[in-house]
Amino acid sequence: MGSEPSDAEVINEVLQGRPERFQILLERYQPYIFSILAKHLPPQNIEEIAHETFVQIYLSLPKFKGESPEEWKGWISKIALRAAYSFWREQYRRREVQLDALTQEQREWVKEVMGRASKDRFDELTRQEEAAQVLEWAMGKLSPKDRMVLELTALEGYSVKEAADMLGWSTANVKVRSMRAKRKLNRILKEIMEA
C-alpha cells in the first residue's frame, strides 16, 4: 500500500530532474496560494498571479533549505505575497488603478461607521456591499508598499516583525510604513467627513 510522498520527497524528486512531480505540490498547495492571493488581489487577477507564483516556486526550489511543512508553507507564502506586491507596483507604474470618487451611499457608509453606530448596526454595515467598495477605494489611495503593510498588519493581524519577514523588508521600514499608511487613511477619511 503506497502512502502519499512528503513535500520534502517530492521536492527532492523535482530537483533530481523529474519536473512532472511538481504537479503533486501544485495540487496540494493550490488552495493555500489562492486563499493568500484572494486577500490581496482583485478576483480577475488571482489565477494569473497564482500561475506566476508557482513558476517562481519551481525556479526557486534549489534555494529552499527548510525541512518542516511549516517552513515550506511560510516560504511559499512569502513568494505569493511578493508576487502580489509586484502586481500592485506594476499596476501603479502603468497607472491602471481606477479611482472614481465615492458615491453618496459610500460616503454615508463611511460617516456612519466612523460615527457611533451601535454594535448591531455596525455588524449590519460591515455586511453591506459598500464595505467592500470603500475598502478597495481606500486601498487604492495608498502606495503599493503602504497597501501591503496595512493589509498584513492592520487587516490580517500579523505583527510588524512577521510582516517584515514576509515582505523581506526591515522591521523599521514596516513600522514606519504602517504608521504612515494609517495616518494617510485617517486624512482621507477626515476629508470625506468634512465634505
Partner: peptide, 28 residues
C-alpha cells in the same frame, strides 16, 4: 484616529471574508 480604527475594524471583516475562487479547468 478612533474613527479610523472603526473603519479598519469594518475593513478587517470584509477583508477576512474574501474567498478564493476555483481555478479554471485548464489552470493547472
Amino acid at each position: 484616529m478612533k474613527g479610523t480604527e472603526r473603519i479598519l475594524q469594518a475593513f478587517r471583516r470584509v477583508y477576512l471574508s474574501r474567498q478564493a475562487p476555483e481555478p479554471s479547468p485548464y489552470w493547472q
